[in-house]
Amino acid sequence: MSYIHGYDPETLREVVDPAECRYRLAEIGPQRSLPALLERVWLLKVLGELDEALTISEQAVRVARMAGTRKDLLRARVLHATVQQYRGAFAAADQELSTCIEESDGQEWTSITAFALQHRGKTRYDAGDYEGARRDFKRLLSLRQEMNAPDDQIEAAMAAVEAVERRRPRSSAAVVAG
């Protein structure tokens, strides 16, 4: 079951039903498996419980490093970076996501590259780096099309490109006016 009901066209953040997310958190409880930890991090993040999300994301990275695959570790690191993004630590999130993109590119793990690009683009968007976000979202769209990703993923990537395109003229005008 997907808890994402769409994306906010201005912030690009997931639109969720908080009650559904809280119910799922209760179902997961204190489970310590890597999938449960990653799901808890995401749920806490979208609910705005960022301190707890950060703590659990750090735990998930440790668990993935000790007992997971390299792909598991990359996924955990991407999720950890998204928590940093939500907390406003854009430079740290961007650096972590860039490292994940480089590693997944080197291994030709296209789905993980796309996942990390999506979140680096959102991080750059939040930080006001609309040109960097645009490059990431364009590459994301291209990768998803090449992978024959589900329509909703392609549509989300297209919406992200459109959102950053709407922002770019304003940022250019602000520079000229300043």
Rank of each mutant, 00 (worst) to 15 (best):
M1P: 10
M1L: 13
M1K: 14
S2T: 14
P9K: 11
P9R: 13
P9V: 13
E10N: 13
T11Q: 09
E14W: 07
V15N: 14
V15K: 15
P18I: 13
A19Q: 15
A19K: 15
R22T: 13
R22Y: 12
P30A: 10
Q31F: 03
R32D: 03
E39C: 00
R40A: 05
W42A: 06
L43W: 08
K45Q: 11
V46T: 10
L47C: 12
G48M: 12
E49N: 08
D51C: 00
E52P: 00
A53W: 02
A53Q: 03
S57Y: 00
Q59Y: 07
R62E: 07
V63N: 01
R65D: 13
R65E: 15
M66Q: 11
A67V: 09
A67F: 11
T69M: 06
T69S: 09
R70Q: 11
R70H: 10
K71D: 13
K71Y: 10
K71R: 09
D72H: 09
D72E: 10
L74W: 13
A76K: 05
V78N: 04
V78R: 02
T82Y: 01
V83P: 00
Q84H: 08
R87C: 06
D94Y: 03
D94K: 11
Q95V: 13
L97A: 05
S98K: 07
T99L: 12
T99W: 11
G106I: 07
E108G: 08
T110N: 08
S111A: 10
I112E: 09
T113R: 05
T113M: 04
A114L: 01
F115C: 01
F115N: 01
Q118P: 00
R120Y: 03
R124L: 07
Y125V: 04
Y125M: 11
A127T: 07
Y130A: 02
R134Q: 03
D136Q: 00
F137Y: 05
L143D: 03
R144L: 09
R144F: 03
R144W: 05
Q145E: 08
Q145L: 11
P150F: 08
P150C: 08
P150D: 12
Q153P: 03
I154R: 12
M158C: 05
A159Q: 09
A159S: 08
A159L: 05
V161E: 01
A163L: 09
V164F: 02
V164I: 03
V164G: 05
E165D: 04
E165Q: 06
R167D: 01
R167V: 03
R168L: 04
P169R: 03
R170W: 06
R170K: 04
S172H: 09
A173T: 08
V176H: 10
V176G: 01
